[in-house]
Simulated assay, not measured.
Amino acid sequence: MSSEETGIAGEEEAEMEEVVRVKLGCYGGVVKLVEDPSEEIMLLWGLRQPIYSNPNAYVLQSSLSLRLDACGHSLRILQSPSSLMTPGVTGAVMWDSGVVLGKFLENAVDSKRLLLQGKKVVELGSGCGLVGCIAALCGAQTILTDLPDRLRLLKKNVEANINSNDILGSASVCELTWGEDLDPQMLDLLPDYVLGSDVIYNEDAVRDLLSTLQQLCGTHTTVIVSGELRNDSVLEYFLEAAMENFSIGQVDQLEFHSEYRSNRVVIYILVKKNFEECANDN
């Protein structure tokens, strides 16, 4: 090995040593703690190079449905491709981040890193409902939520896929608009988990999303969100804003489902800081 190569290897080893790995919330795996959002963005785009990975590796948005096997069931998720022509409407079709997150949940349950059986789960921005349906198949009591005009397709998919006697959990659909006060019934028992895929897409939505997470999460709640690496500034804004009240860890791709990994998709675990931690940070 040349002296130059030795130097590069030494720098890489030093960088690895600086990474802080912790366990967060109820996720049994170890995650890389996010301490500096700008550094996180630089590493994601530098190491992952998402622009060189093909988008829509696991989905076809022009199709009327997506078929996927999960938890011993064959799911058929209906899509509405024509809805993409309506400005701002993207939840009527599937995206890679939803498929990756759904299969991540299945794999994490199978490998004992997550226990969803009997847990209360709320999915935000459910869209077509794949992630929430897989959570129900893993045994969770799942509430899938979205805006009023998105609920018709969501209900169809829940009814079509969570309808047999051998389902371990349950799934219901509820209207929820980020940034608004939550239904008191949803706050009676705060969820064990909050899930979301492709929920970080512009700064206004980030502010409303974090407002809802503040209301919805207790210190016992584990948030799991996935997103596609499209806009570095929006993701950095989310991380900076979320770190005021949440500890954040990035899940290593090796803990994704082995057949559903993409350099374009990242998964984060968030847990709410307790009062003392927030006071010290301020």
Rank of each mutant, 00 (worst) to 15 (best):
G196R: 06
E180S: 13
N165T: 14
D166W: 05
Q141N: 14
K155H: 12
N163H: 14
L151Y: 08
C138Y: 02
L144C: 06
N161V: 13
A171W: 07
S126W: 07
G169I: 00
M186E: 09
L151F: 10
L189N: 14
L130Y: 07
T142P: 08
C138L: 05
A160N: 13
I167H: 00
V158S: 06
I167W: 00
P148G: 03
N163Y: 05
E175I: 01
A136Q: 05
C138A: 03
L130K: 05
R150Q: 15
L190P: 08
L195S: 13
D149Q: 11
Y193C: 01
S172D: 10
N157S: 10
C133I: 15
V194G: 13
L176V: 08
P148T: 05
G196M: 07
S164V: 04
K155R: 15
E175Y: 02
K156D: 14
L187I: 02
L176M: 07
G179W: 04
L147K: 09
V194M: 10
Q141I: 00
E159K: 12
I134G: 05
N163R: 12
T142C: 03
A135H: 11
Q185E: 15
A136F: 00
S164C: 09
Q185H: 11
L147A: 12
W178M: 13
A171D: 02
C174P: 02
L154F: 12
G179Y: 11
Y193E: 01
P184D: 02
E123W: 00
G179D: 05
